[in-house]
Amino acid sequence: MLEIQNISKNYGKKKALQSCNLVANKHDIIGILGQNGCGKSTLFKSIMGLIEVDSGNIHYNYELCDFNQRKKFGYMPEQRSLFLDLTLYEQLKFLAQLKGMISNGFENLVDMYIDRFDLKDKKHTILNKLSKGQQQKVQLIAALIHDPDVLVLDEPLNGLDFYSVQLVMNELRIQASKGKIILISSHQMDFMDELCTHLLVLENGQTIKNGKLVELYQDYGVCVSVNADSLWHNISKQHKNILEKGSMIEFHFTNLIDAKKALGNFCKEPTITTLKLHNVSIGDMLKEGE
């Protein structure tokens, strides 16, 4: 279990993080969200011991987090952090050697990960020759290669195409299923919806939302989406919370019972060809919070 207790960090007068709390258990995928400069990276660096917090504690498995504890953490910073003149294999080997795990099935792990991330033919390619998305995947492999218990990933989906995002999300789900704790930040809300089990939302260093995603969904009600070219105008008169989202219209309901009733009515409307009952998206949750 990773437990963050009341940590605060100031950069001069700027309060980067204020009394932040978080509890993460095995199998949790925690999305750390917020606008640019809200304190996400500061939180990650604090967890990794790269900056000293002004107050508060970080515990891992009920012990105060020190360098040895953090050896079980894998970290992927936001910026591109690679020796670009090395090959993919050399970079991973260097980091694995630093962790002291080079003889411990390293070769098999490298082959497994580069296969999973679709980089098999790039094993001996100089990193400079890889695309940004491929470099991003190498960085993620570098964070995974020593089989850490906790993964701290700062914007791992940046610069990835849709196919690569799916690869990364699948991998993270596999890692979570193995009992690992994953902390991830991203601005790609749609993917966070699909991936996260928990959310921590920061604003100017302050925590504004924190909890299990299912519980947060309850707070924000339920949505029903229908195709936009339906005769929704008549139906919509009865509703206040309507959002137009491309080819779909989204109706927000405060509870599931109302949503089910509306669903029944929509079923009778012949022009409605697409009908979906779903939770409020994380993006909309954040918008509502503003």
């Binding site: 990794m48 011991g49 790269l50 953090r70 953490f73 910073p77 591109r80 952090s81 630093l98």
Partner: peptide
């Protein structure tokens, strides 16, 4: 400048 310092410092003190 290659931002490797944070990575290295999570591996060694």
């Amino acid at each position: 400048t290659s931002h490797m310092i944070p990575i290295i410092l999570t591996h060694v003190t």
